[in-house]
Design a binder for these strands. Structure first.
Lengths: 139, 139
DNA sequence: CTACTTTAATCAGAGTCTCTGACTAAAACA
DNA sequence: TGTTTTAGTCAGAGACTCTGATTAAAGTAG
């Protein structure tokens, strides 16, 4: 089995389950919206930064933020340090979703560790962290 | 850094580079088309099977196969064992793309091994193969 | 200070991907 | 034979993403 599929299959499982948990908790967010949402920092993040982090164009990021804003999950506030820019911030309404996602992620990691063992899980994480050094275009 | 992103970043790099290599070799295929294409077996595969393997609906798979067919990369032939079914087969035109993808993949794996070391690469593969046992819905 | 360049964001339009629901035809089964 | 299941298609809509052009603010060189 090729390494691409080996990386992708667990990733997709993780993403699907987290989305399901968030949806079950009553948050109506799509996958693309969630990918943007999780990149927003605690003090707000500029659209351009979000676009880079999520690997989409500014237009796409703007489109998704528009939807998130309409749904009340984010708000845009002026950036005090730059008159052109605005900061996208997570609203109180969306704050509750973060721990839901975090808990589901922890649950999944625990399941994985149970199956492959603590040692292998540690090796997996170590290898991936090293691999990200050469494959992440934003570091 | 969360495990999801750790899995996704190298995956995306792999996918992007393979797509770039295939495109550079003169094959005009989209990512979604490629995901279907790589699931087609040597003797042809049914649409329904492709849909399951690629994790999309039959309609979506059909839509992508239509495009691949128009571009001359696949053909549909009757399934001799089932009058309702048709086998999607890779045409000669598309055969050349497979080694291009394979070579790029091997090149990337070699680079990764160079960076993280042979030992870690082995551990990574071992851990992922074990992980796929519990995360692959199609096995 | 002024003119030029860059940067942040948006507007407009199009192409691609994916889905739900309804349907046809062949196969499998009771 | 009649019913149910399976393989695939048709129709329509929604979601995602892109390229190109534009506006406004900031930065920079003279």
């Amino acid at each position: 089995m090729n390494i691409g599929l080996l990386l992708y299959i667990p990733y997709r499982e993780l993403e699907n389950r987290i989305m399901a948990a968030v949806t079950a908790a009553g948050y109506d967010v799509t996958l693309a919206q969630a990918r943007v949402l999780q990149r927003i920092g605690p003090d707000g993040t500029r659209l351009t930064e979000l676009a880079e982090a999520a690997q989409v164009t500014k237009q796409t990021a703007g489109f998704l933020v528009d939807q998130l804003e309409k749904a009340g999950y984010v708000e845009r506030v002026p950036d005090p340090t730059d008159g052109r820019a605005r900061l996208v911030r997570i609203t109180e309404k969306a704050q509750g979703a973060l721990p839901v996602a975090g808990e589901e992620m922890a649950r999944i990691e625990a399941e994985w560790e149970q199956h492959i063992g603590k040692r292998r899980m540690g090796q997996l994480r170590e290898a991936l962290e090293k691999l990200v050094e050469v494959t992440d275009p934003y570091r």
